[in-house]
Simulated assay, not measured.
Amino acid sequence: MNKGLTLDDLAVPLRVLRLLVTDFGHLPAPEIFVSTIYPDRLELRFHDDLSGFELWRDVLGIVPDAVDYREQGGGRTRVLKASAAYAGAVLVLIGYGDVPAPVPVGAAA
């Protein structure tokens, strides 16, 4: 924790959060993360809801090619991550979702 920072030092991401609530309050609610380690960053995290991630990505104008894809948990969890500059802050979207189980060979469709 950075003991030299004050709440005023987090004004930029908190202001962006206020703008997002005003402009996009109808969209799915993410987990919201602000950190003293990265005082210019606001993270919006979507757990078990990649559709929420995609809605936010679209309204923020982040192109699909700018989304990083990886897997964690032994290949059981998809992780989508994208970031963009927004109103003076770095806005980071992170989405977590299950990787569908493979269909066994010979199973009926």
Rank of each mutant, 00 (worst) to 15 (best):
L17A: 10
G52I: 09
S83P: 01
L50K: 03
H26L: 08
R15N: 11
V12M: 05
A82Y: 13
G4M: 10
G88E: 15
R18E: 14
L55I: 12
L17T: 10
E71S: 13
E31S: 11
A101D: 07
V59P: 09
R18M: 11
T77R: 10
V90K: 12
H47W: 14
D23I: 08
R18A: 15
L20H: 11
D98K: 07
G97D: 15
F24T: 03
R70H: 11
Y38R: 14
K81W: 05
G52L: 10
I62T: 08
R57C: 04
D48Y: 03
Y96H: 15
E54A: 14
L17M: 14
G88H: 12
V79A: 05
G75K: 04
P30F: 01
L80S: 09
D68K: 15
Y38G: 06
L14A: 15
L20Q: 09
D9G: 09
I94H: 00
E43T: 10
V79T: 03
P13L: 01
V67E: 00
G4N: 10
T77V: 15
R45N: 08
L80M: 13
F33Q: 02
G97C: 11
A101W: 00
G4K: 11
G4W: 00
G52N: 09
T36P: 01
G75R: 04
L60V: 03
Y38K: 14
D68E: 15
I62E: 06
F33P: 03
T77G: 04
Y96R: 11
V59W: 02
A66E: 11
L19C: 02
L44F: 00
T6A: 06
R78W: 12
Y38Q: 13
P28M: 13
